[in-house]
């Protein structure tokens, strides 16, 4: 685990704390998701129904990127959105209530875990690969027109780099010099297809060159490496110097979605040893940045926040079926 000398211990604790909160959250959702789906697994059953894509192992991307963003910046994310949403500062209670399909949720139970919209933090996500990139361009256009140094960040998986919307978006953002940062989470797998079988280049960061923008690949799943790379990209966008592309070689610690037995996954045995969270924690203990006691306080505090959000969701009302046709339009109704 590479540590970057210029980071203060305080910043390191912040980054670790963010990773701990995300992991605690994903473990809690995992627990709740499976709690009432056994003995037979029924994807549509239980308090959290539907597909569930969890981001354990990808905390370094979220924490390292989120540390550079403010509430006023925009972020678009993917079908696997919890970690970056948390790092962006999305309201945990309302996000959790949405995942539980409750009326108090971010989308009043209309969106679900792949469709989280938080106007307060300008966060959104989309379940369609690569299609979160184009809206980020428009958010960046609006920010630039409004003056100031707000930026838009589009997060996508490595599979998105093979989709048309990715290339159209990089070209347009570069052409118009938009304040955008594109972040690719390369977790090696497009569901069951390994990256080598889907992608013609070894680094998607190289694709930045095709559009005349900087492209950086962070090879180690290290929060400090992400922090440094994203820091430069964010600063460049804020300064009005245009978009950048950052790819992080990260880790999908669990399945593509819950219920995925991962029989296709040849690297499964080595996965636990690559978990970035204990590695980073140990590095900080070894460096003297934190003590074991500090870490225990961190995890306890994260648990408290996460369980509060889950309690809030569970105590919230489910939507009234009589309202099922609401919110198609803001004005009038479909006839």
């Amino acid at each position: 685990m590479t540590l970057y000398p210029e980071l203060t211990d305080e910043k390191r604790r912040e980054l670790l704390n963010s990773m701990v909160l995300i992991r605690t959250y994903e473990e809690a959702i995992l627990r709740e998701y499976h709690a009432d789906k056994s003995p037979g697994f029924d994807i549509g059953a239980g308090l959290i129904p539907g597909e569930m894509h969890l981001a354990a192992g990808q905390e370094p991307v979220a924490a390292g990127l989120g540390a550079h963003l403010t509430k006023d910046d925009a972020m678009t994310a993917t079908h696997r959105p919890h970690h970056v949403a948390i790092a962006k500062g999305v309201r945990l209670r309302e996000m959790t209530a949405e995942i539980f399909g409750r009326e108090t949720g971010l989308g009043r139970g209309r969106g679900g875990h792949m469709h989280l919209f938080d106007p307060e933090t300008h966060f959104s996500c989309s379940g369609i690969v690569a299609e979160g990139l184009p809206p980020a361009l428009g958010q960046a256009m609006a920010f630039r027109r409004g003056g100031g140094d707000r930026i838009a960040v589009a997060v996508a998986g490595e599979g998105a780099a093979n989709a048309g919307a990715f290339h159209e978006s990089l070209n347009l953002a570069a052409l118009w010099k938009l304040p955008v940062v594109f972040v690719i989470e390369d977790n090696d797998w497009g569901i069951s297809v390994p990256r080598a079988q889907s992608t013609s280049v070894t680094s998607n960061a190289d694709r930045g060159a095709a559009y005349g923008i900087p492209g950086v690949r962070v090879e180690e799943n290290s929060v400090e490496g992400v922090y440094e790379a994203c820091g430069e990209a964010v600063a460049r966008a804020r300064a009005g110097n245009g978009p950048s592309l950052v790819e992080v070689h990260t880790l999908r610690l669990w399945g593509h979605f819950e219920g995925d037995a991962q029989g296709y996954r040849t690297d499964l045995e080595g996965v636990p040893g690559r978990d970035p969270l204990p590695t980073y924690k140990q590095a900080l203990v070894d460096s003297g940045a934190i003590t074991e006691e500090d870490y225990n306080v961190m995890t306890a505090s994260a648990s408290e926040r996460v369980e509060d959000a889950i309690d809030f969701a569970k105590a919230s009302p489910t939507p009234d079926p009589a309202d099922a046709l609401d919110y198609v339009f803001s004005e009038g109704a479909r006839s």
Binding site: P134, G138, A142, A165, N171
Partner: peptide
């Protein structure tokens, strides 16, 4: 004037609208 990139510029319209513009 945009490039011939309908996904990118229609999506950009969406993002701009979400942030209060009227494209």
């Amino acid at each position: 004037d945009t490039p011939i990139s309908e996904s990118a510029f229609i999506g950009a319209g969406i993002g701009a609208a979400v942030e209060g513009m009227r494209p």
